[in-house]
């Protein structure tokens, strides 16, 4: 009887342990809700961002390898072209191992992944990709301030990163600066996928003929931006708008997010 009880306890606790690991992640940081004015958005007004959890680090090669091993359909050899282009995981030697550079990049952000692959990875963890607004909101933070928009030094440093070529081997995910929320490498490591990367109207959107004409001209994209000074954000929005969901890029990775409500519900 006691033994049965013990087994029962064991079974239950294993499950709960697994649950606890999934829903109370030490690997995520809480981003307090607030408002901000997106570079491109509905007019030039502040939009609300609800509090959410964000991975402290971008997903690494080693983590993505574990995912691919468990989910063969995301292996290089198996993935459908509509979900990831031919360059998918090009920096790995095979679909099932990182290969010769493993020691150097195990702990570096995974790159050459498509939106579908990134999305599937996050869903597997019970998470999702952050929205553009969530990502941009969290990226406003410097080491000390939640919103460092008007911090010249911070802006200059960001600009410098974006103007540097990619190193041959990306540094580890811990190497970039830790921001106000405890999130690392929002700026300074890789570009990152977002859930609604395709929400910015940088293409000619013919909802009004007037703006359509405007958008026929070079530079029209910037003309509807709220803060033309923020070149760093402009680059990100422009980059996103050039993506397709099966594209993979040599400096584009991702991290996952989680809504606070979902998290509570799962507890």
């Amino acid at each position: 009887m006691a033994r049965q009880l013990f087994i029962l306890m064991l079974v239950l606790s294993t499950c709960h342990l697994a649950l606890a690991q999934k829903s109370a992640p030490a690997t995520m940081a809480r981003i307090k809700g607030g408002t901000f004015v997106p570079l491109y958005g509905a007019g030039k007004t502040a939009v609300p961002v609800k509090g959410f959890q964000l991975d402290k680090f971008p997903v690494t090669n080693a983590e993505f390898l574990a995912f691919v091993q468990q989910n063969p359909k995301w292996r290089k050899s198996e993935v459908k072209r509509i979900f990831a282009d031919a360059q998918y995981l090009r920096h790995w030697t095979t679909g099932q191992s990182i290969g010769t550079d493993a020691a150097k990049i195990n702990n570096s952000p995974v790159i050459n992944v498509s939106w579908f692959a990134a999305k599937a990875y996050c869903e597997c963890q019970g998470k999702r990709l952050p929205t553009v607004n969530e990502w941009e909101y969290a990226a406003l933070a410097s080491e000390t301030k939640a919103d460092a928009t008007n911090d010249e030094k911070f802006y200059q440093r960001s600009l410098e990163w974006y103007s540097q070529p990619n190193p041959e081997y990306l540094p580890s995910v811990q190497s970039s600066f830790r921001n106000y929320y405890g999130v690392y490498g929002m700026i300074g490591l890789v570009w990152e996928w977002t859930a609604d990367y395709n929400s910015t109207m940088l293409v000619s959107d013919a909802r009004t003929t007037e703006s359509n004409n405007q958008q026929q001209f070079c530079g029209a994209g910037a003309s509807s931006a709220t803060n033309v000074k923020n070149y760093v954000a402009f680059m990100r929005y422009a980059f996103r708008s050039s993506l397709k969901p099966n594209y993979t890029v040599g400096n584009l990775g991702f991290r996952c997010a989680q809504s606070i409500n979902t998290q509570l519900a799962k507890r």
Binding site: V11, C15, N71, K73, A120, C124, Q125
Partner: peptide
């Protein structure tokens, strides 16, 4: 015991998020 096991496995499954059934449909 069976009931508890069933319940706990159901809970586990829910926590498992029908891993990677979405978005693709390669399978």
């Amino acid at each position: 015991l069976f009931l508890a096991l069933t319940l706990s496995f159901t809970a586990c499954e829910q926590a498992g998020h029908s891993c990677c059934v979405k978005p693709t449909a390669a399978a």
